[in-house]
Simulated assay, not measured.
Amino acid sequence: MKQIYAFETIEEITSFKEITDELYSKLESYKKLLEAEYALTEEPKGIFWTSEELATSVFSDIPIPAFTNKDLIYMSPDINKWRRLFISQLEGVSVPEIRKFYESYSSNQLLVILAHELTHHSDLFLDDFGDERTDSIWFEEGMCFYLPRKILLSNVEFTEITAVESELVKIFEDKYGNHSLDDFGGSSYKGTLTSIMYDYWRSYLAVKELVEDKAAGDIKVVFEKYHQWHKQGRTLPLTQFFHAEFM
């Protein structure tokens, strides 16, 4: 993968060079593990480093400055902007411990976001980038967070981010939780930042439960069930299929 820089000033490129090189270097070992264990057969052509503003207003209209397509991963390396973004998703709710967590959001957590985008390129996911991806996007998005968090974070970091997102799901359930996980799709990205992130939080938590509680920690068993659902014609919503399979 090549590193490509798209900023409005030379000074921005220079100021982010250290963190982009660090993230790129750390991603390499994770990429090798995906290749060996999780069917990453064709990596994207490059990482397109850019600013939060350009990522969300020029290259995309999604309010999250990290996304991927068939050829490129787009991502802002500005950790301070990520911290402010995550604090804004709290919508002014007073949760001092969660706010403190996001105020000190680490480069290791930022690496997980980058690794999340790379994980989308695994051939274990059944829908192509051009597909509508409306009936199982929660599984792919949740797994794309679960895998890098489980692999790249320490046990303390993993427990901490899981606790934060579990609490956020509880806080915003009445406001944003009135639809099935199976409805997570293209229309989800037309909501507010928090409504979008709500579906990411609970997708991650749903996959974590599948792997750790239902499949005794065996990620590959969960993928096998997912492929079975596809081969049988997707006759049930994926949430119902998994429930039936793991009863």
Rank of each mutant, 00 (worst) to 15 (best):
K150M: 12
F158Y: 14
F172N: 03
Q109G: 00
Y204C: 02
P148Y: 02
V169L: 04
D135L: 03
A115R: 08
K208G: 04
W138Y: 11
Y200I: 05
S122I: 13
T159W: 10
E132R: 05
K208H: 15
S104A: 14
S154L: 07
R133F: 12
Y105D: 01
S136Q: 13
T192C: 08
Y102H: 08
V156Q: 14
G142K: 01
E132I: 10
T119C: 13
A206Q: 10
E132T: 10
D199C: 06
S188D: 01
K208P: 02
L152A: 09
M197H: 05
C144S: 15
N155V: 14
H179W: 06
N178M: 14
S203Q: 03
H120A: 11
L147F: 13
H120G: 12
E157I: 12
I151E: 03
E173M: 06
L205Y: 02
L205S: 00
W201T: 01
K175I: 11
S180P: 05
L114P: 01
K208A: 15
S122L: 09
I137E: 00
D183Q: 07
S166M: 10
M143P: 01
Y146F: 15
F101A: 07
K190Q: 07
V207Q: 01
L153P: 03
E103D: 09
T119A: 12
V169H: 04
S104M: 12
H120Q: 08
D135T: 09
L118R: 03
D135Q: 09
E141R: 05
L205T: 00
Y200T: 04
Y198F: 14
L114C: 05
I113T: 09
W201Q: 00
K208N: 15
I113R: 00
S203V: 11
L110V: 06
S180D: 13
F145Q: 03
I171F: 07
T192S: 15
S122R: 06
L152I: 14
R149D: 02
F129C: 05
D199V: 06
L168Y: 03
S104N: 10
Q109N: 08
G185V: 06
L124E: 07
G130R: 14
S106E: 04
V164G: 07
F145L: 13
R133Y: 12
V207T: 01
F125M: 03
F125C: 03
Y146D: 00
